[in-house]
């Protein structure tokens, strides 16, 4: 437990750094495909696939052995003539949705994808409602409650005083 606790560190980038604490780097020279078009597609796909043993890293960034296996697998499928979406389908069938860093739209992720739009729409609706209420005639007066008798008396007194001396100060 103690030894593990050590690894607790203070801050964002650092916790992230830990994930790569044995860092060398991800894509190795021997993995690269001779065909540059296929290779760039492989890199593009790698950025959308999660290294499942790492902490939120794509297989493009990770140097874990599993990430390497996945990178090689992606390249194998591409060389075999798969399209990008076929590769993603293949990996999702094998490893589940967890492998995709950009989850597919479905019932389970509908809220996730809708969130930005919903929040924005709610905000706009709230603002429009506020403006409507405000622009209703007589609203400004209704908002301020009338003075109580005591307040009215005090006001008269203050105004009277002000008239006598230098006038109300700013």
């Amino acid at each position: 437990m103690r030894a593990r606790r050590n690894r607790w560190i203070s801050i964002a980038a650092v916790a992230l750094a830990l994930a790569a604490s044995t860092s060398s780097f991800a894509v190795q020279p021997d993995e690269i495909l001779p065909n540059p078009a296929l290779e760039s597609r492989a890199r593009e796909l790698s950025r959308e696939l999660r290294c499942m043993v790492c902490q939120n890293q794509s297989i493009d960034d990770s140097d874990a052995p599993l990430a390497r296996d996945l990178r090689l697998l992606v390249r194998e499928r591409l060389t075999a003539g798969d399209s990008n979406s076929q590769v993603l389908d293949f990996l999702t069938a094998r490893y589940g949705q967890f492998v995709l860093l950009k989850p597919r739209l479905g019932w389970d992720t509908a809220l996730l994808w809708a969130a930005p739009g919903v929040v924005l729409a709610l905000g706009v609706a709230g603002l429009v409602g506020l403006l409507r209420r405000r622009s209703r005639p007589g609203h400004a007066e209704a908002e301020q409650p009338a003075l109580t008798v005591a307040e009215q008396r005090r006001l008269t007194k203050l105004l009277g005083e002000g008239g006598k001396s230098t006038g109300p100060s700013a």
């Binding site: 950025r47 959308e48 999660r50 939120n56 794509s58 589940g96 949705q97 967890f98 492998v99 995709l100 860093l101 950009k102 989850p103 389970d108 992720t109 809220l111 996730l112 969130a115 930005p116 929040v119």
Partner: peptide
């Protein structure tokens, strides 16, 4: 801010509620 909030906590909530594991990363 809400987008980042939902994106960060959604996988957690989904896993607790349905046992389903998804990832939300940079592309999202």
């Amino acid at each position: 801010c809400a987008t980042v909030f939902v994106g960060t906590l959604y996988p957690l909530a989904l896993e607790v509620l349905t046992d389903e594991k998804i990832s939300v990363g940079a592309p999202f």
